[in-house]
Amino acid sequence: MERLDIDVRRCKGCGLCVEFCPKHCLELGDGMNAIGYHPAELHKPEACTSCSLCAEVCPEAGIRVFRKKKGKP
């Protein structure tokens, strides 16, 4: 399951999500988006805990966070 959906159209590469991720699983990618920035990428998806801190600090409201429902097998 992908835990993060980073809206690469919006990302301005500010790096706040990278900085505040407690598991250091985000980084700014090499690719460039239509507005000229290098969008953040989830490069260690296996380390992501869906803690949402990246989305919390994202100034573009551009990260959606998913997790497995609790109580499911």
Partner: peptide, 26 residues
């Protein structure tokens, strides 16, 4: 799977004009 954080429904889809990292967006 559940979504635990997303853009609020009361916001529009429009790309914000603020500079990178500006806290206005937050």
């Amino acid at each position: 799977v559940e979504c635990v954080m997303a853009r609020p429904a009361s916001m529009t889809d429009k790309l914000m004009h603020y500079c990178p990292g500006c806290t206005h967006g937050i």
